[in-house]
Amino acid sequence: MAKVTLTNMCMIYDKENNKVLVQDRIKSWKGISFPGGHVEDGESLIDSTIREVKEETGLTVSNLESCGVIYWFNNETGEKYFVFQYRTEEFSGELLHKTDEGSNFWVDLEELSNLHFAEGMDERLSMFLEKEYSEGFGSWNQHQPGKLQFQ
């Protein structure tokens, strides 16, 4: 049976200050992205996102809005990798500026596109910001890095 990995990511938007919370990741998928992580067995997608955001940022988020799904398929092994993407303007708590995942900081929405993103993160931004697409799909294998197609 092929391996299926479920993950999540959440854009936290501070509407009052027109800022977005980003994470400069140092472990895996290095570079700037939004906080998130793996869905645990028996955990809902939204609950996993709330948990991951809390662990990685110290913030408690609520009222998550879906921003679509990224679906990667390994055409050699059959492995499937999903990223369920969310956004919210509702958060509370005190920000952890540094964790073992990396550093967290607020950035002006207008400056977001100038950052050094984790590979492929820049092409996903429209899913979070403009809600232009609901799915990104790509296939990959050890000889061919994938390229996402959006729809």
Rank of each mutant, 00 (worst) to 15 (best):
T99A: 14
G93P: 08
M121D: 09
R124N: 15
E123G: 11
G93I: 06
D108F: 02
D108Q: 03
F91L: 15
L95M: 03
A118L: 08
G120R: 01
H116I: 12
S103M: 07
F91P: 14
E123D: 10
H97T: 12
L112Q: 01
L95I: 08
E101F: 10
V107R: 00
H116Q: 08
L115F: 03
S126Y: 14
F117D: 00
G120C: 06
L125K: 13
K98L: 13
S126R: 12
R124Y: 07
E123M: 14
D122C: 11
L109Q: 13
L112M: 05
E94N: 14
D108S: 05
N114Y: 04
E110W: 03
S113C: 13
F117M: 02
N114Q: 07
H116K: 15
T99Y: 02
A118D: 04
V107W: 04
N104A: 01
S103N: 08
R124W: 05
H97V: 10
E119L: 11
L115Q: 08
H116R: 05
E101Y: 09
E101S: 03
E111N: 13
D100A: 04
W106K: 11
N114E: 09
S113H: 13
E101C: 02
H116F: 04
S126K: 14
E110N: 13
H116P: 04
G93R: 05
T99C: 11
E110R: 13
F105V: 13
W106H: 03
L112E: 08
